[in-house]
Design a protein around this nucleic acid. Sequence first.
DNA 1: CCGGAAAATGAAAACGTTTGCATTATTGTT
DNA 2: AACAATAATGCAAACGTTTTCATTTTCCGG
Lengths: 346, 346
Amino acid sequence: MKRARSRKGAPGIVEVAARAEVSIATVSRAYNHPGMVRAPTRTRIERAAADLGYIRDRMAGTLHNRFSGTVGLVVPTIDNAIFAEMIEAFAQQLRGHDRTMLIAAHGYDLSLEVAIVRSLLERRIDGVVLVGFDHEEIPLSMLTQRDVPVISIWNYREDSALPCIGSDNRQAGARVTEHLIERGHRDIAFLFPEVTSNDRARDRMTGALDAAGSGGLTPPPERILTCPYDIGEAKQLARRLLAENLPSAIVCGNDIIAQGVLYACHALGLRVPRDVSIVGIGDFRGSAHLEPGLTTVRLPARRIGRLAADAIVEMSETGLPPEPFHQAVDFSFMERGSTRPIRPKA
Amino acid sequence: MKRARSRKGAPGIVEVAARAEVSIATVSRAYNHPGMVRAPTRTRIERAAADLGYIRDRMAGTLHNRFSGTVGLVVPTIDNAIFAEMIEAFAQQLRGHDRTMLIAAHGYDLSLEVAIVRSLLERRIDGVVLVGFDHEEIPLSMLTQRDVPVISIWNYREDSALPCIGSDNRQAGARVTEHLIERGHRDIAFLFPEVTSNDRARDRMTGALDAAGSGGLTPPPERILTCPYDIGEAKQLARRLLAENLPSAIVCGNDIIAQGVLYACHALGLRVPRDVSIVGIGDFRGSAHLEPGLTTVRLPARRIGRLAADAIVEMSETGLPPEPFHQAVDFSFMERGSTRPIRPKA
DNA sequence: CCGGAAAATGAAAACGTTTGCATTATTGTT
DNA sequence: AACAATAATGCAAACGTTTTCATTTTCCGG
């Protein structure tokens, strides 16, 4: 049984107006268009508000305005090193714009996204940021029907239907693979997460495999493995792979998998990079400090978060698509200790 | 210049009511008290709503109700392995209660908390969850003045002023230290994060040092170091410590520091646990899979998140303090490969 | 088939703001 | 000092719901 709490000591705009001896309209303006009210009046109002401990009710305002000052962020998961970085940067940048973040995770279950977007819409968000390009049709149409700005982040495609801010994951996958090929590696294994309904992983894998092809390599099926996003499971999978038939190098779909693989090497007494080279993708916090440091590609998570915040706020204010519509944010290749050149076997 | 977007195709309750040929009151009831409207009517309404693509505006309802269905979570940072786990569990559990999470991070700057709490209050949250016990007076009083439920999570004290759900960090600190002492370690170094305005770290350190004292140890000042929450910096700090004057064991304030220390050992060619034992606190994702596995204390992050969600929702519904007011959630000691017993030097 | 109780529905008044329009105060100009 | 022009303020009508109270409909036993 719900019991409504009494609105004990919460003064409203009316109380402030009374105390400052002005109308509520003036109080409202003092907050929303400070330039419109004379300095002395404003001071009186500020004083009154402070005395009373007034906190305005933005929800009430939202009713009249078109804007709630709240932006939705929908991610696969919060509990992920590199998303977390992006999320934090996004939230912080939003605060700078006097906006608040509503966040929800769907755990890679796209069908959950519709419920989530719906719930966001019920809260009258000013915009939504989604991760990647794989989405169901319904949530997208719900958003466009209501003219709520949407952007896709993390991945980049020059021809995406949604405005996007992110790195080209195909290139990232290609980059690390090329690095290995350039160094003379020919027997390369590929460990990627499940790619269904995950365009980032899919693009990375495509990029990696294409690069292999361009390098004259055709990795046999047993060299292409699906691996969960989890250090422990990656480690276990890698142990089997490494024990059976050691490749000369391993391309990992992300740094977490790479970390698992590296630990598997430690556990098996294999030396990295002497016995096997490892590359990751992402450059998670800590990847640089592994022993040896992980060769990987740095995805600028914080930058993407900040840019996304700026873009979605601007879109909600102008009502226009962002400029540029497709924004590629550069990644950088980080060569560290986990890879080394090999002489091709004669 | 702001340009208000037109409310293009967004039907309101009025449109639904018209199409279903009932009054708006009935539509409202169909959503909020389904039992109150006859099945055929309800079906007509649902049909109409679906046809129109109606999404209710909870903000408008909030105006009349006391509740917004939104709960605030204020954390030091989102970008932290173990908080992220808690956050995700919290958000998920909230969704189960048909609530949404507003989250904000203050980056260990408590003075920011007041701005954050204020901003939450402006959004009419139904409750706030804070991390730990170190808080400024103002945000707390703002909350109590408005009768907004608050709970503190993560840490536990049987006499805290705020209701709390968390583990006893003093005990956690003591537990890992005792483990080392029991195994014969006498020269123990302590690496803890800055403890000002961080009661969790402070309690862990207190616990660790107390345990040392009870074990007859009085660690000299050069064995007690302050270490940032960062793998790289911890690694660097540890390199110096280990090179100068090797202790037989190291107690780390959290698993991130422990990870840095472990990498420092690898880098220096020290074998763990042969040359030095390491313990952490937290049991972050991945700590089990390090080589060697990290001996640590598992703090049940997800459980805390879930319990917190349940508690804050219940408080907002009943208006009563939670039961129990002080909830200790057990941690478990995880003995793994990073520690070993030593024979005391004769 | 009726009367009365119970259940379902409707009409209208909130909720706390913002803003268009009307009104009043303040300038600056001769 | 008087007048227009302009700036500051107030009044009252939104905004999209929920809920109270009154009214109508349904249900049921006689």
